[in-house]
Design a protein around this nucleic acid. Structure first.
Lengths: 189, 189
DNA sequence: CATGCAAACTAACGATTGTTAGTTTTTTAA
DNA sequence: TTAAAAAACTAACAATCGTTAGTTTGCATG
């Protein structure tokens, strides 16, 4: 069990505050107060407020990219791939619920890394869409509007961070299974 | 065709800016600049920055409450009621796409009206959940997890504001029908 | 006990925040 | 044409913003 560094602790606490009020509404003095120190002391560990946001968002975005690449590389049916995408979102959202808030709502405040983030997100959505289209072509998936399916599934999966922390008794396996039932069986023949 | 007042124009332009960067990151000088005036001049028409947020969010929240009450009062099956809820979201999101961003992401910055807003939202969700539960009891709806169904449907419907403006060629009727197919037929027997 | 470093501190900076007071310009109505 | 009302303006306020400089504290290692 690796001990978390002071910097990691700051980023973790910042993510929690950012979830509650949004990145822009949290001051460095708010964050320092939550850490039990003065604002200036934060700068012994981090470079800037922006840098904290970058740490939060980019690390999670890269988790999604990594997960998607593994799913794409696997030799499974398209329906099976969708099932694994759902599991990917449930897993990441369970472990980074606070950070997911920044990723969803504060990505536009990235500056140097904005283009990089948008590229990751764009590629992720492209890959997701391709799986849906392939599934329709191969008759695994019913329906003719992959764009709306993508939107609907992603909306649910991206909102998991709001909902998971309120159901502490819920285990990820069971949630994945239920979401799979609702999201996948709903569009498959 | 009623001409919009200067105040209404300010609120409309503010909603657009709030969607792009979030309430906290938009300054009164940003808003004034977008209106082609000085920040101090805004105060001839509005009381405070907070007040603009209130106008945006509460008016939309009351549209949802009104729509839900009409659906509850109607004499329809639970499945039909869900279909009308979807239409309600599509209609409101089409006509208030920018405002929906504030409602979803900046409601926590309401101060005086925070309790009122949360009450409206809570009641809305309660009514939505009740329709799902009744539908399950009366065998209209398949499945045993109304809470996850509610979460999934609401996530999609609340995200419509992000997606509708990107598809200008799409008409609300057709979108409602497609969402109905994906969201409702997916969970009905 | 002494040294060095990590991590806290105080104090302050220039910029920006929402907002007010008081004044001038523009539009409306008699 | 003139008076009133609406809507813009300039200037400034106290508060807060992210951040830097320089200093002190506490702990680990020699």
């Amino acid at each position: 069990m690796k001990q978390e560094t002071r910097k990691e602790e700051i980023v973790r606490v910042a993510a929690k505050l950012f979830k509650e009020k949004g990145y822009s509404a949290v001051s460095m003095r708010d964050l320092a107060s939550a850490m039990g120190m003065r604002a200036a002391s934060l700068y012994n560990h981090i470079n800037s407020k922006q840098d904290i946001l970058k740490e939060i968002i980019i690390s999670i975005a890269e988790l999604f990219t990594k997960g998607m690449n593994e799913i794409l590389a696997s030799d499974r049916s398209n329906i099976e791939k969708l099932k694994h995408i759902i599991e990917l979102h449930v897993t990441i959202s369970s472990q980074n619920a606070n950070g997911m808030a920044s990723l969803n709502n504060d990505w536009m405040h990235l500056e140097d890394q904005l283009v990089y983030y948008m590229e990751l997100r764009h590629n992720y959505e492209d890959n997701f869409r391709a799986i849906l289209k392939n599934g329709i072509e191969s008759n695994e998936i019913r329906g003719s509007k992959p764009e709306i399916m993508l939107f609907s599934m992603l909306s649910t999966l991206r909102s998991l961070y709001l909902w998971i922390p309120k159901k502490e008794d819920l285990n990820p396996k069971e949630l994945s299974a239920t979401l799979n039932e609702i999201l996948i069986n709903g569009i498959s023949k």
